[in-house]
Design a protein around this nucleic acid. Structure first.
Length: 821
RNA sequence: GCCGAAGUGGCGGAAUGGGUAUACGCGCUGGUCUCAAAAACCAGUGGGGGCGACCCCAUGCCGGUUCAAAUCCGGCCUUCGGCACCA
């Protein structure tokens, strides 16, 4: 295709050829080493945005590069197609969520093809199709069999805007992760996955994930929040009944002056009955229940509570402690009950001061003596135990162990570990999700749907309103069924699954997406898993990545997979921003990828996005920068056209300029390969640009005298290096220089270290650490020669004459530093 | 408040097992071509000084270690993320 760079024609031509040949299809091949490259699949919200383009382009470079290097590369794509936006669209515009979703998928599929991403299109999956979500249901049943699914009534997070419950991970700083509404608390009976059973393994195995950013590992570690401490039993005064608390500070047990229960604690009614404080306590509980998560967990808000009229007995000294309810005690953590030690816990301190409860110091640091009445805040540091009977004198940590051990002997406590991680609430009171495969039989109670009756198909004829409650409840055909056990009347569960369930295992399904007999084929999943390189946004640092790790571990225990971690290496890409802010409709700073593709082509869009910033960092959008990338591709185009002519000229002997260009080409091959491996995609492109600059200088200097063999070799190398970044133009140019085969199947070029080696280096000469001269010397110069050359330099002499040379430092092949006095 | 990351030209960014600071690109200035413009190409471009070969200063700020610091250490400042009553 001679003439100007017509990106539209070029990209269309190769897109059609790739499609026709199904170029990117892969299968298992035991003769090759596999590489599984995966980008987080998109939610089909409409059009591809710049963040998607960045994500998929980065992945595509890695995939194409690894293919060129001879690996068998799995690089699939699918659509995370269940979710709220589809339902919102249905409510707003009366479209069926399925139709809305499918239309969006179609658009995004086309756009991904326009971008030229090398996906194995035969593996495309849509999680909203029964062929996929039936396996969600199957997994749910298997988890149920293993005791990892349970149903319980609990105080749960409720998003009033989404009209559904949320998992703990999905509440960010008290607001809904998706819509930003203040989350409320509700008492509801819901389905949970018992992720806490895996807390210890999820925590420990973070150490295996050396290919993950430390930041993400830390976030997960904090989220799991392991605490070592003790359970201690407190008897309710005047009864034999006991309440268990969890504490990490058993050393302060002698300093407990009151006792706290969460307002939701189930024992409250029973305790308060007959104390005459019923009304006051009930009013307090009512007040707390109305608070949003934000109010309740804000540190600034003053702690409040109410006395129950009852007491517990401190097991270490028999003292009676008043039982209060306090809003800062959470039912979901530990046991929902706390011993309060105001001298050594800031929250208890504030509470005690507010309600006039005594404060007693039981830990004293060396060289200081705290007096309860003088303290302005709790003392939480180290020190020795005081006022603690036989334990006096022990340091904080040994004291905690000693007290716990002593309680354990007496049967009043034990060592314990708790986690901040809560079980994963997966029920959603929404329509557009996977139906939970459970039945409620009038006689048998809760009954799982038998495996051979899957899938429980999501009915299409549903009225979706914003009225709240599961829309499926209204579909009597769906709800009313018979019990598989007794044949009697039963009704189906009408809640659907959290859509994070869908994305917790899709990467394994890609190894065998069309399998209608098994969730995955064991050979295929063994061949491809784990994912070698996973790429996506940091916003999933906890949510999706933690859930996926949990699923993989359960699958491992089930014998379904042989790996304990799903993603060996993780790259968290940075956001695309414009004018310093995240692109968003409300700010009006959105750049539509399709505009860029229409104006400059996909290759330019890809190149700019990769060149403007390293993948993990934010990318500041720049229209000028895009033009620069487009100019570069035009330069490459003209250069290759020019060289295609030069290649046909008669042979000639190698000269210095030829060797120099060849050297540059080999150096560039080395650098580009190394940089892609370490995700220095911006620097690999700059290296390619330098090669192009070198080639241009060569052509200008040599004119008709150019060496055809050198030109051919260097031009071909250039095209091969460019191919992962700008695949369309590379295909075309590859053809221009006379090749028939698709560049996709051509091996990555090798480099010869001998050719890449420079015959001369620049010797930097410093005097007292300041650069004074730069001298070109042979690369293999000895240290002795370096020293001599440096001292002989005229510039250097000006600084050394009349001075005493104290010492001369040499760095082989680089630098000499002369120290004078 | 706690944890983490990052501060380099006018801008995006290079260079960290200490050793040529500012690669590559954008922008800007001048030039070639043109009736003119665009495109393309060529040259220049951290700041300051000198007629000059050159010199001084500069990687958020202040100190330190070293022959040598963007890079290591200590202390600040700023920005951005995450967590946020977890007993």
């Amino acid at each position: 295709m001679a003439g100007a760079y017509d990106f539209k024609a070029v990209e269309k031509k190769w897109r059609e050829r790739w499609n026709a040949r199904d170029l990117f299809r892969v299968g298992e091949d035991s003769a090759k080493t596999k590489r599984y490259i995966l980008e987080m699949f998109p939610y089909p919200s409409g059009d591809l945005h710049m963040g998607h383009v960045r994500n998929y382009t980065i992945g595509d470079v890695v995939a194409r590069f690894n293919t060129a290097r001879g690996f068998n590369v799995l690089h699939p794509i699918g659509y995370d197609a269940f979710g709220m936006p589809a339902e919102n669209a249905a409510i707003a515009r009366g479209v069926h969520p399925a139709d809305w979703t499918n239309k969006n998928i179609k658009t995004m599929h086309e756009q991904l093809k326009l971008l030229g991403i090398s996906y194995d299109w035969g593996r495309e999956m849509i999680t909203a199709e029964p062929e996929y979500y039936r396996w969600n249901q199957w997994i749910f049943l298997k988890f149920y069999e293993r005791g990892l699914v349970y149903r319980k009534e609990a105080s749960v997070n409720w998003c009033p805007a989404c009209e559904t419950v949320l998992a703990n991970e999905q509440v960010e700083a008290g607001v809904c992760w998706r819509c930003g509404s203040d989350v409320e608390k509700r008492q509801l009976e819901q389905w949970f996955f018992k992720i806490t059973d895996y807390a210890e393994r999820l925590l420990n195995d973070l150490d295996l994930l050396e290919g993950w950013p430390e930041r993400v590992r830390t976030m997960q570690r904090n989220w799991i929040g392991r605490s070592e401490g003790a359970y201690v039993d407190f008897a309710i005064a005047g009864t034999t009944e006991k309440i268990k608390v969890f504490t990490t500070r058993a050393d302060t047990l002698f300093g407990a002056t009151f006792f706290l229960l969460a307002p939701e604690h189930p024992l409250v009614d029973e305790l308060v009955a007959g104390t005459g404080r019923e009304a006051e306590v009930a009013a307090f509980r009512e007040e707390v229940s109305k608070e949003t998560e934000i109010d309740r967990t804000s540190v600034e808000i003053e702690k409040k509570g109410v006395f129950t009229g009852r007491y517990v007995v401190n097991p270490v000294n028999g003292e009676e402690l008043p039982i209060w309810l306090a809003d800062y005690v959470l039912m979901e953590y530990g046991t929902g009950a706390v011993m309060a030690v105001p001298a050594h816990d800031q929250r208890d301190f504030e509470f005690a001061r507010r309600y006039g409860i005594p404060i007693e110091v039981v830990i004293q640091p060396e060289g200081e003596e705290f007096k309860a009445e003088e303290m302005a805040e709790a003392y939480v540091g180290d020190g020795r135990m005081v006022n603690s009977g036989r334990f006096d004198g022990l340091w904080k940590d040994e004291g905690a162990r000693a007290v716990t051990g002593w309680l354990k002997e007496r049967g009043e406590g034990d060592f314990a570990i708790t986690y901040r991680l809560r079980d994963w609430l997966i029920s959603r009171q929404r329509y557009w999700g996977t139906p939970i495969p459970m039945l409620y039989c009038e006689h048998c109670g809760v009954v799982p749907v038998p495996e051979d009756e899957l899938p429980v198909v999501l009915p299409k004829n549903v009225k979706i309103t914003q009225m709240g409650g599961s829309p499926l409840k209204q579909v009597s055909d769906f709800v009313n069924t018979s019990c598989p056990k007794c044949g009697g009347r039963a009704r189906r569960e009408t809640d659907t699954m959290d859509t994070f369930v869908d994305s917790s295992w899709y990467y394994l399904r890609f190894t065998n997406p069309k399998n209608d007999r098994q969730v995955f084929n064991s050979e295929k999943v063994s061949y491809w898993s784990p994912v070698d390189q996973y790429i996506g946004g940091i916003e999933h640092a906890i949510l999706h990545l933690l859930y996926s790790r949990f699923f993989t571990k359960v699958f491992y225990d089930m014998g379904l997979v042989k790996v304990v971690e799903p993603f060996t290496n993780l790259l968290t890409q940075g956001m695309v921003i414009k004018d310093g802010a995240k692109m968003s409709k409300s700010k009006g700073n959105i750049v539509d990828p399709m505009d860029i593709i229409n104006r400059y082509g996909a290759d330019t869009a890809r190149l700019f996005i990769l060149f403007a910033s390293p993948p993990e960092k934010e990318l500041e959008w720049s229209d000028r920068g895009v033009e620069g990338s487009f100019r570069f591709l035009n330069r490459v185009w003209r250069l290759v056209e020019e060289n295609a002519t030069a290649i046909r000229r008669p042979e000639r002997e190698m000269g210095d300029a030829d060797n120099a260009l060849l050297r540059l080409a080999h150096q560039t091959v080395k650098k580009v390969g190394e940089d892609i491996d370490s995700f220095g995609l911006n620097t690999s492109i700059s290296a390619i640009m330098e090669l192009v600059n070198g080639m241009r200088d060569y052509n200008e200097a040599r004119g008709d005298q150019a060496n055809p063999a050198v030109v051919k070799e260097v031009t071909e190398r250039l095209i091969l290096l460019l191919a992962p970044f700008a695949p369309f133009i590379s295909e075309e140019l590859w053809e221009t220089v006379g090749n028939k085969e698709s560049v996709y199947h051509v091996s990555w070029p090798s480099y010869d270290p001998e050719i890449a080696k420079a015959p001369e280096i620049t010797l930097v000469v410093q005097v007292n650490g300041k650069v004074r001269d730069r001298i070109s010397v042979p690369a293999d110069i000895s240290e002795e020669n370096m020293r001599e050359t440096a001292l002989a330099s005229e510039t250097v002499r000006r600084y050394t004459d009349g001075k005493k040379i104290v010492k001369v430092f040499t760095v082989p092949g680089r630098l000499v530093n002369v120290v004078v006095r």
